[in-house]
């Protein structure tokens, strides 16, 4: 296991926490994942994600525009796999349909906004959340705000290179990865063995 001194841990870390990348946390290579700033095998991270979701009091998935909108081939299938994973984990879903700041305020009971994600976390008392389908720059910003101001544990299932600012991050997440995680969750629940 590679490590740096800085750990990406459950917050609140305080106002304006540093970007994990600036503290030496590096993105994982293909086949690896990040757990709290350390690079681990992807399968280990998947197991840990299942544990975190199943032990959470109030887990939520935050799907973003890349999976909420059927804008290209393959998205509908990915959305279906995400929904199945959330249902398996008995997690609720709050969408992030776009990135408008929507001043003066959003309705935190029904949507999340990358510019003030803490409002949705606080309002719904969310202790574990999963980001998926959120464009990377907005995900990084939201993850940092959550780490700074809440005690929510963050998981980022990224279709690209992963997120240093999430407590657990997978990279190159495809439909088969989501199905694999759903299977792990079901096995841990003692279903479908």
């Amino acid at each position: 296991m590679l490590s740096t001194e800085y750990r990406v841990l459950r917050g609140p870390e305080g106002y304006l926490p540093p970007a994990a990348a600036s503290m030496g946390v590096v993105l994982p290579e293909k086949g690896s994942a990040l757990v709290e700033g350390c690079i681990v095998p992807k399968e280990d991270a998947m197991e840990l994600i299942a544990d975190k979701l199943l032990s959470a009091k109030n887990p939520f998935f935050f799907p973003g525009p890349l999976v909420l909108w059927a804008w290209k081939d393959g998205v509908v299938e990915k959305a279906k796999a995400i929904k199945e994973m959330a249902e398996a984990a008995e997690a609720k879903i709050i969408p992030m349909p776009d990135y408008r700041p929507k001043y003066p305020m959003i309705n935190p009971a029904i949507e999340i906004n990358p510019n003030h994600p803490n409002l949705t976390i606080w309002h719904n008392k969310i202790d574990v959340c999963v980001f998926i389908g959120v464009h990377c720059h907005y995900a990084n910003m939201a993850l940092k705000i959550i780490r700074g101001g809440t005690e929510c544990y963050t998981i980022a299932l990224c279709g690209e290179a992963g997120h240093e600012d999430a407590m657990i991050s997978l990279r190159d997440v495809r439909v088969e990865d989501l199905k694999r995680m759903t299977q792990i969750i079901m096995e841990k629940k003692g279903v479908g063995k």
């Binding site: 799907p63 059927a70 279906k80 995400i82």
Partner: peptide, 10 residues
Amino acid sequence: ISPSFYDVMP
């Protein structure tokens, strides 16, 4: 909207 998420969209 992706059909799976239709019910959760505002």
